[in-house]
Write a protein that binds this DNA or RNA. Structure first.
Ligand SMILES: [Zn+2]
Ligand SMILES: [Zn+2]
Ligand SMILES: [Zn+2]
Ligand SMILES: [Zn+2]
Lengths: 139, 139
DNA sequence: GTAACCCCTGTAGTATACTTTAGGGTCAAG
DNA sequence: CTTGACCCTAAAGTATACTACAGGGGTTAC
């Protein structure tokens, strides 16, 4: 049986994070020792790693709670899990699209900037100040 | 001269947002009418659009405050602006990289999931539970 | 003179995933 | 028997960009 500090070290998270996960219902409420200390079975370390891996691919703690419910729901099927993953996949692709558009615009702008001269002549600021299109007068 | 509501409508933001921008120092403190109402020159609408366009390409309000300081700083040069843009560009590329890696992993996992059968046999959950590599036993 | 609509200030709430703080017990070593 | 490391709870703070709320005054038309 492990103390919370042991679990934290082995799981690569802080003690506070563990208490937070418990409060959020992401890990089982551990039994307590006579002194009130939480006592964990070693396998809880894997549960924490489950959470961290899920976060690594973009799931929020709320999503992860969902996933954990599916794991223990006898009526749940593989496709339920797959649906969450596909949903997350589109969220991520959407974010990539938005960021790619930002990247393209910024890239165009930085290429247009001569990097010399006063800010008053900077095409980047011009673009930000401008009406809508990429090139137009300031009135 | 415009009331705050006029500016909000023309700038496509809420009245509250305008007061917030003012509080954050992103727009000039407007003069007040005898009744205490803020009175804006029409050009403030462009300043708001500057802020919104900068947000659209990923700048935070803090970044935008910086950019606005450069605009009015006589000692600032074009390259200062370009540096901010390049910095933002790398931030965005970094985010894209992270998201792309998430996308690849999720895509692999969803392809591996048969979408039928119980969750206990789901390769997605297996992957989340697993030690580190893509394939290994649960102990 | 009153309804409908605008404006004001200051403070608190929203979402996410923690971290920090305050205040206080427990345990092992020397 | 005290020191240092560890554990406990509950509440508040962090970052971002607003939004909402509470409570109150101004303006315009009928
Ligand atoms: Zn497990
Ligand atoms: Zn420039
Ligand atoms: Zn301007
Ligand atoms: Zn599956």
């Amino acid at each position: 049986m492990l103390n919370i500090g042991d679990v934290a070290r082995q799981g690569g998270v802080s003690v506070e994070t563990l208490r937070y996960y418990e409060q959020q219902g992401l890990i089982e409420t551990p039994d307590r020792d006579a002194n009130g200390y939480r006592k964990y079975a070693p396998e809880v370390v894997r549960h924490i790693q489950f959470i961290k891996r899920a976060q690594d691919v973009g799931f929020t703690l709320r999503d992860i709670g969902d996933l954990l419910s599916l794991k223990t729901d006898p009526g749940a099927s593989c496709s339920d899990v797959r649906d969450r993953a596909l949903g997350k996949l589109s969220e991520i692709e959407e974010k990539i699209d938005v960021l790619s558009r930002m990247r393209d615009v910024l890239s165009t702008w930085t290429n247009a900037c001569p990097s010399t001269g006063p800010v008053s002549a900077c095409p980047i600021l011009d673009a930000l100040e401008a009406r809508k299109g990429p090139a137009n007068a300031d009135r």
